[in-house]
């Protein structure tokens, strides 16, 4: 009897005496490894229908290119808008698009949380030794979302080369950091709005208006929307840190609305704060999760 309960997995975990540091690192990496595992599965599944995958990617890419065209026309027509030239406008657009695109690729599936709750597949996620957030986010991971990210990054490259900026390594590093913050901010907003579905059935539409509406908002220099909106997307739903502040940082330009200049450096802090909020909301949602009656 003594050995019947023996796990069949000797050497499964990095052994207890394996050095705390390695253990901690493995533990930290675990969600990412699990994510990769689950995402790979969906990639393989999608690859079974290459034509459909290609067509869907093409559709997404066409959508992005149409939006790029719109930006070019709007700015080209007006010459400058809120003091932004065509390439500067494209920079704002591309920063927003790539941040949203990357966030959508990795975390976009969380908006389907309500579906998982209703069908009971969320129960199945809860009994696996993997964070349910990772499982929800990785669910139906699709490479077609690259159809949005790749053109957005290309446009970003073009814009960066053509704007009138003095480049330094520091600036490049700052840009990379602000972009990462942008992705985190988008993902966190996504998670927070998805959590509404823990409490209200069918809240997906409300959540979508926040996330996708927010995306539309950040694609243009937000100064054109007026002061109220700029303030609310800075201090309430911090979308200004996704494209607007990073653009000001890259262009080294004073804020046209006279908001404090240090704001452009607070992107990473905002991202960390928002992720902490998202984690808190997610945990609260989980605690209030009530499964389904049957």
């Amino acid at each position: 009897m003594a050995d019947t309960h023996r796990r069949i997995v000797p050497g499964d975990e990095p052994g207890e005496g394996d050095g705390g540091a390695r253990l901690a690192v493995t533990k930290l990496l675990r969600p990412f490894l699990d994510y990769r595992r689950l995402a790979w599965l969906w990639v393989r599944a999608a690859a079974q229908y290459p034509l459909s995958l290609a067509l869907m990617s093409l559709a997404v890419t066409t959508g992005v290119l149409t939006q790029v065209g719109a930006v070019v026309i709007v700015f080209g027509h007006a010459g400058t808008l809120a003091g932004f030239t065509v390439y500067e406008g494209l920079l704002v657009f591309a920063l927003a698009s790539s941040a949203f695109g990357i966030a959508d690729m990795f975390a976009g599936s969380v908006e389907r949380l309500g579906h998982h709750v209703r069908t009971g597949s969320f129960d199945a996620m809860l009994i696996r030794p993997v964070s349910p957030l990772v499982q929800v986010a990785a669910d139906e991971f699709s490479p077609r979302r690259l159809g949005k990210v790749v053109p957005a990054l290309v446009v970003l490259g073009i814009a960066l080369v053509n704007v009138d900026v003095e480049w330094s390594y520091l600036k490049m590093a700052l840009l990379a950091l602000t972009m990462l913050s942008g992705v985190l901010i988008c993902s966190a907003i996504w998670v927070i709005s998805a959590c509404v579905q823990f409490f209200v059935a069918g809240a997906r539409e409300a959540a979508n208006s926040l996330t996708y509406g927010g995306q539309a908002l950040t694609e243009y220099p937000i100064a054109i929307y007026g002061e109220e909106i700029v303030r609310s997307v800075t201090y309430v739903v911090p979308l200004a840190f996704v494209s607007w502040q990073p653009a000001l940082l890259v262009l080294d330009r004073p804020d046209p609305l006279g908001m404090p200049e240090y704001l452009r450096h607070t992107g990473p802090a905002v991202a960390v704060l928002l992720c902490a909020c998202a984690a808190l909301v997610w945990r609260t949602g989980l605690r209030h999760y009530r499964s389904t009656g049957s």
Binding site: V9, D12, L38, A45, S121, A124
Partner: peptide, 23 residues
Amino acid sequence: RTTLWWDLPLRDSLALTRHLYRV
């Protein structure tokens, strides 16, 4: 209801389970 992945062959579902449980 099932805890398996609807679209995967049973074998793949089980293999995935193995990775998630780290067997």
